[in-house]
């Protein structure tokens, strides 16, 4: 019995704590002047420096999608649908999810590690003792940067993925270019893209909040920092995948 109750209680506690941290973050976002310098630094870190992994991931995902769907569609002579399928999959689903997961691995882990080592070396206490809010200085810039940059990265991922699909479909597999483009334009609406961007923004908040929470509550030296980092990545990824399903079903 205890083996069921204990993890559930732990989950509820952490969920509640992350929710409270979210409220605090919202409070500090509006309560005082934003630290623009810190925000831009984080936007550079979360956005610009993630560009490489996002482009590679998006590009190859688009390419492999074209290859796989071509294999399927060819069986009933609908190769022309490859473009639309790739574009819909990228914009609605894979662009935001893969971007979220890659940024979690790159930036979320770094957030947890940075805040974790600041915690164990008492730098966070030092801020508090100076009567300055660690949430305002450390968490607000990271969460806002992720909220703004994830949609931007997702657009880039969508675009690169579709270009990848185009290259494989049209240039390599010789699908008729006119049909490929026409079907894509016909079946992909702006709403599909918006849906993806809303997801991306939510993933950005989730991954930064969870990673910051984990870092912020680190205990026990280097080992603790390692543990927080691992947990930040695992929990953020799970949160992204679960919320992805919920958001998709809501925004059908």
């Amino acid at each position: 019995m205890n083996s069921v109750v204990a993890p559930l209680r732990k989950f509820a506690t952490e969920f509640g704590a992350i929710w409270l941290l979210f409220l605090d973050t919202v409070y500090w976002t509006f309560r005082s002047r934003l630290k623009l310098g810190y925000l831009f630094k984080q936007m550079e870190f979360v956005g610009v420096r993630s560009l490489g992994v996002v482009i590679i991931t998006g590009g190859f995902t688009g390419m492999v999608l074209a290859l796989q769907t071509y294999y399927g569609f060819r069986k009933f002579s609908s190769e022309g649908m490859v473009g639309a399928t790739v574009a819909l999959s990228m914009t609605r689903e894979l662009g935001p999810v893969l971007t979220g997961l890659m940024v979690t691995g790159r930036a979320g882990s770094a957030m947890a590690a940075q805040l974790g080592s600041m915690r164990v070396t008492e730098q966070i206490d030092a801020l508090t003792v100076m009567a300055l809010s660690p949430i305002k200085y450390l968490i607000v810039p990271r969460v806002l940067a992720s909220l703004f940059m994830l949609p931007v990265l997702t657009i880039i991922s969508d675009f690169v993925g579709i270009v990848g699909g185009y290259l494989v479909g049209v240039k390599m597999l010789s699908i008729n270019e006119g049909v490929f483009m026409a079907r894509m334009i016909k079946y992909v609406t702006l709403d599909d893209i918006y849906n993806g961007l809303v997801k991306a923004a939510v993933f950005g908040v989730l991954l930064s909040l969870i990673s910051c929470y984990k870092g912020f509550n680190t205990k026990g030296g280097a080992e603790g920092v390692g543990q927080s980092t691992t947990q930040a990545v695992v929990y953020s990824s799970i949160a992204i995948l679960i919320s992805d399903y919920i958001l998709t079903s809501l925004m059908w």
Binding site: T121, E122, Q123, D125, A126, V129
Partner: peptide, 11 residues
């Protein structure tokens, strides 16, 4: 003002 054990300078 407080001086921390490991100084806690912002690195």
């Amino acid at each position: 003002g407080m001086l921390f054990q490991e100084a806690a300078l912002f690195d």
